[in-house]
Write a protein that binds this DNA or RNA. Sequence first.
DNA 1: GATATAATTTAAGCACACTTAAATTTATAA
DNA 2: TTATAAATTTAAGTGTGCTTAAATTATATC
Lengths: 223, 223
Amino acid sequence: MKNISQEDYISIIYKHRDGGGVIKSNTIAERMNISNAAVTDMVRKLSRDGLINYTRYKGVSLTGSGETKAINLIRRHRILESFLYKIVKMPWEKVHEEVENLEHGASDDLVNRLEVMLEYPEYDPHGDPIPDKKGKMPKARSAVRLDLLPTEKSAIVVRVNDYDHEFLRYVASVGITMSSEVKVKSQLNFDKSIVLTVDGNDINMSQKMASNIFVQEKKNRIK
Amino acid sequence: MKNISQEDYISIIYKHRDGGGVIKSNTIAERMNISNAAVTDMVRKLSRDGLINYTRYKGVSLTGSGETKAINLIRRHRILESFLYKIVKMPWEKVHEEVENLEHGASDDLVNRLEVMLEYPEYDPHGDPIPDKKGKMPKARSAVRLDLLPTEKSAIVVRVNDYDHEFLRYVASVGITMSSEVKVKSQLNFDKSIVLTVDGNDINMSQKMASNIFVQEKKNRIK
DNA sequence: GATATAATTTAAGCACACTTAAATTTATAA
DNA sequence: TTATAAATTTAAGTGTGCTTAAATTATATC
Ligand SMILES: [Mn+2]
Ligand SMILES: [Mn+2]
Ligand SMILES: [Mn+2]
Ligand SMILES: [Mn+2]
């Protein structure tokens, strides 16, 4: 009747699988904050239910029906986030956490109605693409990891990983959000951390944090 | 972490307890469509957790903290219903079923925001009172069960029990909704069913069905 | 007040989703 | 190639929330 846990696993697998579509047991456990033994257990059930391919000691990958299910949950998630942000006006850094609990209970019918109200949005409040009713994703916008942005180049924030609530809250607290203009002033060799300018303020940020923020370089007009 | 089942039990107890605040095990089982044994099991857990008073073979009743929890869930439920109906424009007969799955995942913060958007509604789409942030219920409107309405008196529908999805769908399909004007033309002694007029159409309705619809008599102006 | 019927609990068992600790397999490095 | 370390699975156990069947307690009827 309710497969909340299965949905969470499937979507974690979708989001964190590597280029070959494979994810390690370990990664799932880390991302879900549970033991490896628990993952082994669930992975067998998901395999039994035809949602993933699994052979012992190898990683797992989604089957066709598993991927369909994953994309459907991601669609629900991102449309709900967009709705809470755009229409309910919930703060940017709060919508992900709220939707994490809401997504499993929303019907396709509701999600479709919200999509219409939002006039078929292509990206969610974190810049992630929203799959359409058929599961088709809009093309991901080209972007550069903030920790790889050359110094002294102005750039616009176009996507932020919504993997961690604490990270989102911190990012928002230093004034970074979608479409913020940022410029890397320097990169410290000591710990790879960077100093960047946002809204005229200088802030220091760890390499790990910066690697979860994606920007588009601003083409500076030559005058 | 997630006490979805407990929430459902508590709210069923709140809604179906008798005048003395007591509900029988049987009633819970019926309303939830589960076995009596399952109820006994859960009732012990709820008692252990201090949410209900329970002694074997007697019915159960809510404790203070149980009632607080119940009212909080009912508030979430009714505000979400109002929101889906008034703002998302979801059909009247669908909102209850949708919210049944949504209510457990909505935070108080979200519900409070929706309440503001709705400008502090007092009644939900089925005419049920919405508790405020402190748990205070607006006064229930006086109303008469439709099966007890005298014949030939015009009346306005002010509340419909939302206990059963099928019932709601049927009620909507015959054209009855909030503020509908209805008039009982006759009551059949054979099976206590009634014939009533809605929107100029005559329909027959069982006594059981009519007893779940509540109306306010229209004061007919004497001219 | 004994007895039949109805309501409720107990007993035994199952699937799910987790845990810790021990065993096993795979990867890496001497 | 073999020892060692890391990843993964297995084993054993727990709490939740359900099931059916049997036993018990309460209630209604004669
Ligand atoms: Mn998110
Ligand atoms: Mn997002
Ligand atoms: Mn309802
Ligand atoms: Mn309602």
